[in-house]
Write a protein that binds this DNA or RNA. Structure first.
Lengths: 224, 224, 224, 224
DNA sequence: GATGAATGAGATTTCATTCAT
DNA sequence: TATGAATGAAATCTCATTCAT
């Protein structure tokens, strides 16, 4: 389990439990059980990400998830109505973080400021991709069979695209007629390059990759 | 089934047939059988590609393949030792065509000649991707379980990378230190962008996409 | 929940409560607990009937029962050793009411008095069937897996049969040799007809159905 | 396996195989396999009836069926898409036989001819019920979850009812206003009484039961 | 060379029951 | 007395592969 996954699991159960301590009404007992349930669900979510990462969307089995989470099959279905449901939860998490992250890209001037902004932004993307890459790829390749999941992916993709088109337009490097395709190409390059970096054993560290990618984008798309 | 698939299927079993032709006077019947066998195998290979394209690597079932090829399950195992074996054959075809295609990229000067060369080359890639995209993606995402298949993918990828590094070095736009990463980013962009174009319902035709992609590459990587 | 169910549930646990009331001064707390326990058990019994009616004997799940009763799974097993045990309780209730009801059939002369008696009696049966139909059908069709439950059903059936044989003999319409079978046929007709009336959406009200059934029985079995 | 079940299995595959022998076109081999498949399917159908009879509709497991038919789980799904599908086949068989049988009831005059006709008809019903009782009960009690199955049951029931109403009207024993309910009561009595006879261990043979039932119907519904 | 019937391991899902709190 | 989280056996269904013909 990666540090990121562990963090999110802890976070997801920590908040409520802490808050509950100060409110007087819920009985001691109930709170303890509730918190146990929350921990179990978090374990399942984290296990889900882990299995997804290791085996991919199609090959992921409920069996793997429960083994990693160290709970019984029955317990799984206590928290999720089926495999798809677990994936939906993970995808929702992913969509939220992605949308927020991508939207955070500010104007990208041709000078060093632009490069810095890109670097910051690409860095965030790489971190996010380390966590949610599988989900993103499942979306990108339309591997999901569920309508709802597919729609979530399409919506996220559309939002990302819109943000990039806006920035490209500001920088006026790409002719208006090509802007849409350029944005698509930009997403393509970032997603796939990050995939190489995070999954293959390229002998480079994240920082180096982020820097290079920022430079390439700056030069190719923002007229550095 | 596309012309490409039919052609390559025939070719791939052609070697054997050619050998048989030179041996003196095989009985009428044997020759008939051999040619029937060749046709059956070709049908299975083409059916394999077709199913792979429609359902993806993981969801492709032997049952689909034999239904499309219109042969029985038993026949399938006459020609391939298992499902993996069929995929191996297809992947080998793919690797051959890809390596040849990618290697055909000549020097890319910053002027219109360079752009023309890129356009020709990208066009070839898009055509090839229409045929073998599924295989390429299976490689790219390490979806294949078999060692041998994965190795074939890695080798192909490496060769492609080497070609691009060579061209980038010639053009001297990218600093030597970044050349490897730039080549990877280039592959990333081309592969994914082509995937978008061939699979999503972007309202653009191939020609337009090819032109734009060539322009973007030219500008971003070859200092146009 | 119908009035009948509520009433019988309360009554069935009444015995215990009565005993407790006569013992001298149980501590306040204990009394409170006992009465709460009684209420909980009654809730479970009523929920059991309700679920049985809605889903049938085989499809009834403990989960449904506890949801309807609004208690936890754990609580269920405080009051019943297993699912079968709950059904046993319900069946016992049913057997008691049925035996009493059927036994209440007085002589059935061929004239209007006989018809009135039949009508009263059939009316009681229909009301009882609305409440306990599922249990009766479970018996009738040997759907119960437990020996004990099956025996209870057989015993009830036998008693009912005996009563009818007695009345048929008095009326002397059916030859002695056929009396047993006639009684069986009578039970058959009443049970199934009532089932139609209570479960299908026949466009008739209870009163009409009761009257017609009484007439048919009177004519066919008691020489009206 | 009962004699009846065995008979139907043999019959269902016998016809075609016999006919095929005289036609020249289908290769020897193919015919052998086809006939094996037919035998296997017949085995599954018969096993289905047998299991249905022994365990009832809800408790019947695919596992039981394949054990009785002595085939693997996989084979079951080769012939039926699921449990429901098997039941659908059986129910269709049943509906066909029942409709034909019930429709065969001719006019029932009050004299000995009427009794003879009733006896013949009831005898047919009892035989049919021995074979298909479970299906009929599943219909009667709305145990089936599938829309299609339920509709088939309702349709069959309606046809049966119509036939009886016609005969009752001819005999003019029952006032027109009560005819529908009388027909329902008649079905009720016949079905349930036959159920008693065929399933309980009443110490009477079929012939005796049929005779008595015919007499009771004749007297009660046709003014004998 | 080809067929297609049969297999069985393995995947998902349900639900009665137990047990720590 | 009550809770509800957890369990695991059992049921349904899929699919790659084998084998008799």
């Amino acid at each position: 389990m990666t540090a990121l996954a562990a963090r999110s699991a802890t976070r997801s159960s920590g908040g409520k439990a802490g808050g509950a301590a100060s409110s007087p009404s819920p009985p001691e007992e109930t709170r303890a059980l509730r918190s146990q349930a929350r921990r179990t669900k978090a374990r399942l979510l984290d296990a889900g990400m882990s299995v997804l990462r290791e085996r991919g969307y199609h090959a992921a089995r409920v069996d793997d998830v429960v083994r990693v989470a160290d709970v019984s099959h029955g317990t799984f279905y206590l928290y999720f109505s089926n495999k798809e449901d677990l994936f939906r939860s993970l995808a929702t998490r992913c969509a939220e973080e992605m949308t927020e992250l991508i939207g955070s890209l500010g104007p990208v001037p041709p000078g060093p400021d632009g490069r810095a902004e890109l670097e910051r932004w690409v860095g965030g993307f790489v971190a996010c991709y380390r966590e949610y890459g599988v989900v993103i790829r499942a979306w990108m390749e339309d591997q999901v069979s569920s309508r709802e999941l597919a729609r979530l992916g399409a919506r996220t993709f559309t939002e990302v695209n819109a943000t990039l088109v806006e920035r490209l337009r500001e920088s006026a490097t790409v002719p208006e007629a090509e802007i849409d395709l350029a944005a698509a190409a930009l997403i393509a390059m970032i997603e796939r390059f990050t995939y190489f970096v995070t999954s293959r054993d390229l002998a480079i560290d994240d920082a180096q990759a982020v820097r290079t990618l920022a430079v390439l984008i700056h030069r190719g798309f923002f007229g550095a």
